[in-house]
């Protein structure tokens, strides 16, 4: 994946500042990767290489860890992250149907991001809200008892939000130019 303009500098400065908080030792590898992803939204190759160098381990060891755990993402996510719970209760209450509905509606498969980078779709093992199954987590908000019809509603609310934001932005810019 190509880095965006200024991203390289950002990666350097963020990783450097993360190592102000963590000592460069193997035990801190996972916390460091978590913090890196928190700040950069994903784990760019450059960041992993830099972390390997700081801790003094082969870069492939960092890659092994990054590709082992579900939490880590090697590609930038969408602005809104949709996580469909695939725990037992959610599955029995139709979680897979909900996942399919999102896939159909967004035109992407699980694990992918829409071309405009607005939405990304993932499955999660269980968010521990089994009593409210089927559950979808959008960003950090838990949506309980989702039905295929509510999928449209959920997406719509984020699309409307985006339009409103754009309008506001336009208005602001207009205001500025005046």
């Amino acid at each position: 994946m190509e880095l965006l303009e200024g991203e390289e500098e950002l990666i350097h400065s963020e990783v450097d500042s993360i190592f102000q908080e963590f000592t460069p030792e193997r035990e801190n590898l996972i916390p460091v990767l978590q913090e890196t992803q928190k700040r950069l939204k994903y784990l760019p190759k450059l960041a992993m290489q830099k972390i390997a160098e700081k801790i003094g381990i082969p870069e492939v060891d960092v890659y092994s860890v990054a590709t082992f755990y579900n939490q880590f993402r090697l590609y930038p996510p969408g602005k809104n992250q949709i996580k469909v719970c695939m725990g037992t209760a959610c599955h029995m209450m139709g979680g897979h149907i909900i996942l399919e509905s999102f896939e159909r509606r967004l035109g992407i498969k699980e694990g992918e991001t829409t071309p405009d980078r607005e939405f990304s779709l993932e499955r999660v093992a269980c968010v521990g809200c089994c009593a409210l199954a089927p559950v979808v987590v959008v960003n950090d908000k838990v949506e309980p008892k989702v039905s295929p019809i509510r999928v449209d509603g959920i997406l719509l609310s984020y699309e409307i939000e985006k339009k409103l934001e754009e309008k506001e932005k336009d208005a602001e810019e207009e205001g500025k130019s005046q």
Binding site: K45, M48, Q49, I57, P58, E59, V60, D61, V62, Y63, S64, T67, F68
Partner: peptide, 20 residues
């Protein structure tokens, strides 16, 4: 002592590979 290769990914996807 080179450490060029390792096991990456998990489960059925697990394989020997290089960084990236």
């Amino acid at each position: 002592g080179v450490g060029a290769i390792g096991f990456v990914r998990r489960g059925i996807e697990r394989k020997m590979a290089t960084f990236g």
